[in-house]
Nucleic acid binder design. Structure first.
Length: 603
DNA sequence: TTTAGGG
DNA sequence: CCCTAAA
């Protein structure tokens, strides 16, 4: 039950600290805010954003020297994105509610930042905590870690990095104090502060700050002891569920409290490392990521919404997710489109006003794609890479990969459109990228799937003011009356499910079928209907002939299936077979025979 | 909202 | 796939 590792990781790079009781992470994007005299948080003004933006840019530049920049960038690119914690109050002391949800930590960090801000009034510098680590250090760490698949695992890499940070006892504290408020310090945290047995209660504020730094990789100016203790405990524990006092830290691990959610360390292997391992493993088993489930059902999720439901699964999943996430999390075309849509109005490519963002964010709220356990870090120019969603009750940021909504666009919302397949295709470079599928099954043709997400492309463009493509170029429809939005090729498994569903419930019961077999898919009943129609067409036509040969993304449909489709289409009566849902699909022998050799249909 | 159809 | 009309 510990999901912690990832969080630590996050903190390092993105500076988030989301820990949850469940262990689910709750990545959060920070928003630049200003602390008013009365302690209330006020969204930063556009100007402030701009300032920050610059700052970030610089950071970015630095990071560019890192290997696998693209990935790293993705994760480090965050910045003052949104973090609206409605009820969060600034005083640190209020953070101790354990049920505060992951937000607590975030809030904490935020606060920390805010404090810093207080100190140095208008410099958003601390917002950069995200970019805490120096490039060189990062490199070192990266290299130091024996993380094999760097490519496909930026996440892991990062994690490892964090691990090293924590476990690295070498770097002795020292000038930790000199760390700048900005959070970008060149000095190395004094990890030793957390070595051996340490009673947080006995630490001085300064020591706690050091511990904080060792834990989160960034400096804090907060002098609230309680808060610091909690932060450290939470950070080491990856859980929000920590007592306000009495925590004992031993070799970077929190003990002496209900450090339940912790991953037990094994023989001196730092917990973090274990976590990293976990992540890695998870990563290796994409199959375990049931996370991606499409997400229609998650749309309604709201931030802060925490579902008490706690399974062990989420945690495990989290790992998986993370591992997977990293790779996958690429902005979708749609995302870009959206951005474009919004940003387009802003020829300068600057950040849109807070208000706009807010609105946008709102819109982005209903994702359905891959969840990203990590906090999303966006480039200054973009805050839209991910959207927040709820995963198992935790709000997380997910890459904005999928279509938000199916069906008619809202009256006040421009429909998101996907690029044309051809275009999209070109954008998909990383074959190695993990493609999450809604349900493990649909992994058939990765490349065709997710065409919409040309991550790096998007990132870069966005970073640079997202102008790479013109909105119109990308999404014809938005600007002009364009073409179709997305095209998610149907996978064989989907087809099978559909056929099976029709067999059971009958054609026309799309809603039912969808509910039963595509509940976690973005396929809507209309999609099913359309698909069925196409299948029927194919079963007739195709039986022998291959319609659009020019459709590379179309996957061939086994003749047997087509035959079945045909049968179902022809004798609708013999359907409702409620009961054999468990059976995959029955292929009638004759059918198979008949159709065999005839050529396949295409999806 | 869900279906059925047209585009 | 999208969009609408109907229901």
């Amino acid at each position: 039950m510990d999901v912690g590792g990832s969080q630590d990781t996050l903190e390092k790079k993105t500076d988030d600290n989301d820990l949850d009781k469940n262990g689910s992470s709750d990545p959060v994007v920070y928003q630049l805010v200003r602390v008013e005299g009365d302690g209330t948080l006020v969204p930063a003004t556009e100007d402030e954003f701009l300032q920050f933006e610059h700052f970030l840019h610089d950071e970015r530049v630095d990071l560019s020297s890192i290997d696998d920049v693209a990935h790293v960038e993705e994760y480090f690119t965050n910045d003052c994105t949104t973090l609206k914690k409605p009820d969060y109050e600034e005083s640190p002391s209020k953070l101790d509610t354990s049920d505060v949800q992951a937000d607590t930590l975030d809030a904490g960090l935020e606060e920390d930042r805010l404090h810093a801000l207080d100190d140095s009034i208008n410099l958003p510098s601390n917002c950069s905590a995200v970019h805490d680590r120096q490039p060189d250090k990062l490199n070192t760490e990266l290299g130091g870690n024996n993380i094999p698949q760097q490519n496909n695992a930026s996440t892991e890499t990062i994690k490892s990095t964090v691990l090293n940070d924590l476990s690295a006892e070498k770097e002795k504290g020292d000038a930790s104090t000199r760390a700048s408020v900005s959070g970008v310090t060149s000095s190395v945290p004094d990890f030793s502060i957390l070595r051996g047995e340490v009673y947080l209660d006995n630490l001085t504020i300064r020591e706690l700050q050091e511990a904080f730094r060792a834990t989160f990789g960034r400096q804090t100016t907060v002098k609230d002891k309680l808060w610091l203790k909690r932060q450290v405990a939470m950070g080491l524990t990856n859980s929000c569920d920590v007592p306000s006092s009495g925590c004992v830290v031993k070799d970077y691990k929190v003990i002496g409290m209900g450090a339940k959610q912790e991953i037990p360390s094994v023989k001196g292997i730092p917990k973090m490392e274990l976590e990293a391992t976990l992540v890695r493993n998870q990563f290796m088993n994409p199959g375990s990521s049931f996370f991606y489930q499409g997400g229609e059902q998650q749309r309604s999720s709201k931030r802060l919404k925490r579902v008490p439901t706690e399974n062990d699964e989420p945690q495990v999943t989290m790992f998986t997710e993370q591992g997977t996430t990293k790779r996958i999390r690429k902005p979708t075309k749609r995302y870009i489109e959206e951005l474009s849509d919004i940003e387009t109005h802003d020829s300068t490519g600057r950040l849109s006003s807070p208000v706009k963002r807010a609105v946008h964010d709102e819109v982005l709220l209903r994702p359905r794609a891959i969840m990203i356990p990590f906090r999303e870090v966006d480039s200054s120019s973009t805050t839209y890479n991910t959207r927040e969603d709820t995963l198992g009750g935790y709000s997380v940021h997910v890459p904005y990969v999928s279509r938000m909504r199916r069906g008619r666009p809202r009256s006040n919302f421009v429909p998101f459109l996907d690029l044309e397949p051809s275009v999209e295709y070109t954008e998909v470079h990383h074959a190695d990228r993990l493609n999450l599928e809604k349900d493990g099954e649909q992994r058939n043709h990765k490349n065709t799937k997710w065409k919409g997400e040309h991550i790096e492309t998007a990132d870069k463009k966005e970073v640079h003011g997202l102008q790479g493509k013109n909105l119109s170029d990308i999404n014809p429809q938005i600007k002009h009356g364009g073409k179709r939005k997305h095209h998610q090729a149907w996978t064989l498994s989907e087809v099978l499910k559909l056929v099976d569903g029709v067999a059971r419930y009958g054609a026309g019961k799309w809603s039912e079928i969808r509910r039963v077999a595509f509940s976690y898919s973005y396929r809507t009943s209309v999609d099913l209907k359309d698909k069925w129609r196409n299948l029927i067409r194919a079963s007739r036509t195709n039986d022998g002939v291959c319609p659009r040969k020019n459709n590379p993304s179309a996957i061939p449909i086994p003749p047997s299936i087509l035959l079945r489709v045909k049968e179902l289409a022809e004798n609708p009566e013999m359907q409702p077979h409620a009961g054999d849902l468990t059976l995959p699909i029955k292929f009638s022998r004759e059918s198979t025979k008949v159709v065999q050799g005839k050529g396949s249909g295409f999806l």
